[in-house]
Design a protein around this nucleic acid. Structure first.
Lengths: 207, 207
DNA sequence: TGTTAAATACCCCAAATGGGTAATTAGCTA
DNA sequence: TAGCTAATTACCCATTTGGGGTATTTAACA
């Protein structure tokens, strides 16, 4: 089997050098490209798609999240591992939504980085433990759910696009009562339309 | 520091025995409870909350997903690791939504299982590689997005609860045009209301 | 015991929504 | 070149929605 070809995008020269040395130290990996910005990486990738990209986030010019989006549209089969000090939620989730398949913090050991590259190519998604927990937590139910059980029932049906009367019939209550519940839901979620109620309910994991 | 107390819920006697032996073989862990159904686990947990629960999914009586929900409401600080052969998407995501913090397949090595218990207590979320990929994939953008760029713009504003005219003003087009776009969005997403459009857009990762 | 929240039900009304039809322009493809 | 789709605009009309009220019953709670 061929070596796994890796591209590194990292603007700190020492780190770029360190990472490429780590890659080249493995008999299974080959550092195909080591650049300090996304623009150069993309230019080279038009001709050849590497197997894996290690991507920093804070970069001069295009940032690593936008870069990830662009790499994925250019090379859909390329697996991207974020390798960054950024561990704020926004960075993590924006990266994943842009198409990243892994997320390592820069304090990861050389061995972890090598393992991660192998793992991502074997169909896994290597993440630093704290990142994995953030991701998993995003599925956990809301801790401060202000809605009553009945309101939650109504909210679920709202989400399915049902109107006052359909909801009323399925819950065996009057349309006016449904309306009253929806008013209370809006007040508690601080919204004033079905669309934003659904959006908020999903993102707060209420349903 | 005290040993990490572990509870195992597993209905196959050989596996239950094997897992408890693995736990007891570690100087840092203690198998506090080993039972073959959730009902018994919950009965015991009313008095004492273990640090970690290893939870099977296929169980006689209450299944492991419902069990996870119940354990979390009884012991919010307890970390639950699913340990199961089930790797269908529904099982994975339902487990996480029920409150699980890790998900291992039963073919994991004893060493992986021990590592996972330590890791989950250190604030990580241990997952088998294929499970991690499923989770990460759920954040990736839709591959078959049927909407045009303009329709996506409108959809985003729909999601924010904006009405025809507000959307029209922010896009510098007429309200009638917005309406036409929304009609096309509804047709393509096969929905007929803002609420279900928002629901579908979020779950298909269109926005 | 008084208070509060939840669930139920009703009223009115202005505004927003969804469905139908139709036309023009521009760009892309077979 | 003919045909298709996307984007834009416009109109009509019935239904739905959201905001403003008010009121009763029940259960929980301090």
């Amino acid at each position: 089997m061929d070596k796994i070809s890796v591209c590194i995008v990292e603007d700190e020269p020492e780190l770029l050098k360190l990472f490429s040395q780590i890659i080249e130290s493995s008999p299974d990996l080959s550092c195909y490209l080591a650049v300090d910005n996304c623009e150069n990486a993309l230019k080279n990738m038009a001709d050849f798609c590497p197997d894996v990209v290690l991507m920093d986030i804070n970069l001069p010019g295009m940032n690593g999240i936008e870069g990830t989006r662009k790499v994925k549209s250019l090379c859909p089969n390329c697996d991207i591992i974020m390798l960054t000090i950024q561990e704020e939620n926004d960075y993590v989730f924006d990266s994943l939504c842009a198409g990243a398949s892994g997320y390592l913090l820069k304090d990861s050991s050389p061995n972890k980085i090598l393992q991660a590259i192998i793992e991502v190519k074997s169909g896994g998604s290597p993440m630093s433990p704290s990142i994995a927990r953030k991701v998993i937590k995003s599925f956990h139910p809301a801790i401060n759910n202000p809605l009553s059980d009945r309101e939650l029932e109504v909210l679920k049906k709202l989400t399915q696009g049902q109107n006052y009367n359909t909801i009323a019939n399925s819950l065996f209550i009057s349309g006016n009562t449904v309306k009253a519940h929806i008013k209370n839901i809006y007040r508690k979620l601080e919204v004033n339309s079905r669309a934003s109620a659904v959006e908020k309910a999903i993102h707060k994991r209420l349903i």
